[in-house]
């Protein structure tokens, strides 16, 4: 087996890794936003639910979260009469990662919201905006910029966490590499894993580049 073949087979796993990454990140953000919103409510039920969710999810190792999603979600859905046993494993992988990361993102959003200067909100109100306009036009954009470094770190963490989906039998880049290494009885073993590391590294570099460009665009907005 040639090294170029190794690279090609590893790259075959890349789309799965990227799909996992993209969808779990999107859903984690959506759930995270909802959670942060609930957490910031004064309503004790909403607030209590968010706290409980955050506490539980943050205390669960990502690997375990994937197993819980894979074995637990079908049971949970059966309770309401929906059979999702036949769903693709990928969906459970996305769900497990999204649930895990939603808690961290919720915290990032919440703390960013709280650290927006209160004077910004007051200034918006006194120029005649209503509370919704003040939130959407002034507070949210600033909170987003404050949260950005945290979001970037969490996304990079998620890149690496996608490799954990082998526990529920999803074939991504990482499990392809492990298979290759086993099939080759030790030949190219180191090379396989070095190439794998390089591919992850490139993905992370691209993410950092994107965030850097974004920051540069808003460099004069110091929140």
């Amino acid at each position: 087996m040639k090294l170029s073949k190794v690279i090609i087979s590893l790259l075959h796993g890349l789309p799965t890794t990227l799909i996992l990454l993209a969808f779990s990140f999107i859903f984690a953000n959506l759930i995270g936003l909802g959670l942060a919103w609930l957490y910031l409510r004064r309503n004790p039920i909403a607030n209590g639910f968010a706290r409980g969710y955050l506490g539980l999810v943050r205390g669960t190792p990502p690997l375990l979260m994937l197993l819980l999603a894979y074995y637990g979600l079908p049971k949970l859905f059966l309770l309401v009469g929906i059979d999702i046993n036949g769903w693709a494993k990928l969906i459970f992988g996305i769900a497990g990662l999204a649930i895990g990361w939603s808690a961290y993102l919720a915290e990032a959003f919440r703390s960013a919201y709280l650290s927006v200067d209160a004077g910004q909100y007051e200034a918006a109100l006194v120029v005649g905006m209503d509370t919704k306009q003040a939130f959407l036009r002034i507070i949210m954009p600033q909170a987003f910029l404050i949260a950005l470094p945290n979001i970037e770190n969490l996304l990079i963490g998620l890149v690496k966490a996608t490799s954990l989906v082998y526990v529920i039998g999803i074939v991504d880049m990482y499990s392809t590499a492990v298979d290759l290494s086993n099939q080759n009885q030790g030949v190219y073993q180191l090379e396989i894993f070095v190439i794998l590391a390089l591919i992850y590294w490139v993905v992370v570099l691209l993410i950092e580049w994107g965030f850097r460009r974004f920051r540069k665009h808003y460099q004069y907005v110091t929140v």
């Binding site: 200067d117 910004q120 200034a123 002034i138 600033q142 910029l145 929140v223």
Partner: peptide, 8 residues
Amino acid sequence: NYNLFKNK
């Protein structure tokens, strides 16, 4: 302290 909108 002015409170100009920092994102505008």
